[in-house]
Design a protein around this nucleic acid. Structure first.
Length: 481
DNA sequence: CGTATTTATCTTATGATAAATACGGTGCCATAAT
């Protein structure tokens, strides 16, 4: 190991050795320019940019999607004794922002959201700095939160060019082939990149799909499952209302302590519930996709999808929050054929919005007050986007149509997973273009049809012990019914 | 498009059924009104 790296690791961070993937990422970004590093949650991603930052000149800019993540990271850096770290965003008052802008050159780390980064005031200041390293945290957002939600994620490449940054490090925990290629195209403009990646196969997760035909069946399935199977557990729903209903139903019909979590809660409510769940004060958390980024809870014993997610990427990411401790864990999708309709509805809405947009734009004659009055929030962003990135409306429309096609395709891949008669793990791994070499002892419902009626047979409800023998599992199953 | 809730409709008075309506994910920002 390079002695300089070793020294910084010891003195600054107090560690004497690296976790898997950290050293490789650090060495790569120090010797090369464009690095995408895919590391599982819990392997210390932040060290991967913090350490190199001290060996490189200039400031390190870290783009991160959520203010809560940004604040966590700054707090964590401050604990290591780093005082020259700042979070720049809407949580600051006007005076605080002015102060930061005036003293911008003093910082070693600037944490910022894409939206804030594109504000002229901060951009001007950053332009005058020597940016030694540009980090994109949770880089899968470049692919999953693009033009149809947070368009500024699509503008990062142009800002990197504009600032003349040499070294760019993209970090994420999950990246399928599709997402990796998207990051390469959108963030690195199709250039060659250096990839750091470990296997994504989650050997301790058992994959199960339960086909049901009514909501009542789903609820009673959940009731029966959750009262027999010890948690903590996580249930994902597609709507906010469902999270509240399922939570109410389970707390009414079982002895379990439940809570729900979605984007309609205040940030205080959200962080309170998150804290409770992390502290094992809840048995089951029922959430929309709002829950999860930056969460590192080791002992989630099952992740149930009350409805199918909109893509295999989302599914892998969400089910992957289970079993971080390496102990046996379950993934279940409760599937009704109608469930995909809500995703298709969102896709159609997006098409409608872009069509309206193309009709509205010629009427504005660059009069921004018309834009403000008649455009939706997303349409305003498209308006800004096409102006600043010099995109024609036709160009933008094309982009979004393509986006909707991609979304339809992703939904279809998710349905493939649910419909397959073959090994579900293999379906997942092939989506990462990985092939599983070893047939696993405990794999998925299709590999073990004989015990697939109810996957509870694979686990002991009372302990976190892993049963290595299938026979043992069958025995437990027999005793339960 | 599907689901859940509200309103309309029958019509000698409560309540069933149909028809109409509302709603649906992820988060940044700024700014107006308290």
């Amino acid at each position: 190991m390079n002695e300089e790296i070793q020294q910084v690791l010891k003195q600054r961070f107090g560690f004497s050795s690296f976790k898997k993937g950290q050293e490789e990422t650090i060495t790569k970004i120090l010797t090369r320019n464009n690095v995408l590093s895919i590391l599982p949650t819990g392997t210390g991603k932040s060290l991967c940019y913090q350490l190199p930052s001290y060996l490189l000149s200039g400031v390190t800019i870290v783009v991160s999607p959520l203010l809560s993540l940004i604040e966590d990271q700054v707090r964590q850096l401050q604990r290591t004794g780093e005082k020259q770290a700042v979070a720049f965003g809407s949580q600051l008052t006007y005076q605080e922002k002015q102060w930061v802008l005036a003293h911008i050159a003093a910082y070693k780390f600037i944490f910022i959201t894409p939206e804030s980064l594109f504000q002229e005031e901060i951009l001007q200041r950053i332009r005058q700095l020597d940016v030694g390293l540009f980090v994109v945290d949770e880089a899968h957002c470049v692919s999953t939160w693009g033009i149809d939600f947070r368009p500024d994620y699509e503008r990062l490449a142009s800002i990197i060019q504009h600032l003349g940054v040499k070294k760019v490090l993209a970090l994420t925990a999950t990246a399928t082939e599709v997402v990796k290629e998207d990051i390469r195209q959108k963030l690195f403009l199709g250039q060659e990149i250096d990839l750091v990646q470990k296997t994504v196969n989650r050997v301790n997760i058992f994959y199960h799909v339960e086909k049901l035909s009514t909501v009542e069946e789903k609820l009673s399935w959940l009731q029966s499952f959750c009262s027999k199977y010890s948690g903590p557990g996580l249930i994902y729903c597609n709507t906010r209302r469902d999270t509240e209903e399922v939570s109410l139903y389970l707390s009414g019909n079982t002895t379990l302590k439940t809570a729900y979590y979605h984007g309609g809660l205040t940030s205080m409510e959200r962080s309170a519930i998150q804290q409770q769940f992390l502290a094992d004060e809840l048995d089951v958390l029922i959430a929309t996709s709002a829950f999860g980024m930056g969460i590192d809870k080791p002992n989630i014993r099952y992740v149930i999808h009350y409805q199918l997610p909109d893509s295999l990427e989302a599914f892998i990411q969400e089910s992957g929050r289970g079993g971080r401790d390496g102990l046996q864990t379950l993934s279940v999708v409760l599937y009704m054929a109608q469930d995909q309709k809500v995703h298709q509805y969102f896709q159609k809405e997006l098409l409608k919005e872009i069509n309206d947009f193309t009709h509205l734009v010629p009427l504005t004659q660059n009069n921004d007050s018309i834009v403000l009055d008649h455009f939706s929030e997303l349409q305003k962003k498209w308006y800004d986007f096409s102006k600043s990135e010099n995109h024609s409306i036709e160009n933008l429309q094309e982009k979004i149509k393509k986006r909707v096609e991609e979304k339809a395709e992703k939904l279809a891949r998710m349905e493939d997973y649910l419909d397959t008669d073959g090994c579900r793990r293999e379906k997942i791994l092939s989506y990462f273009s990985e092939t599983s070499t070893v047939q696993q002892e405990i794999c998925c419902d299709n590999c073990h049809r004989e015990i697939s009626d109810f996957p509870i047979g694979l686990m002991s409800p009372d302990s976190n012990k892993k049963y290595s023998k299938l026979e043992k599992s069958k025995e437990i199953l027999k005793n339960l019914f």
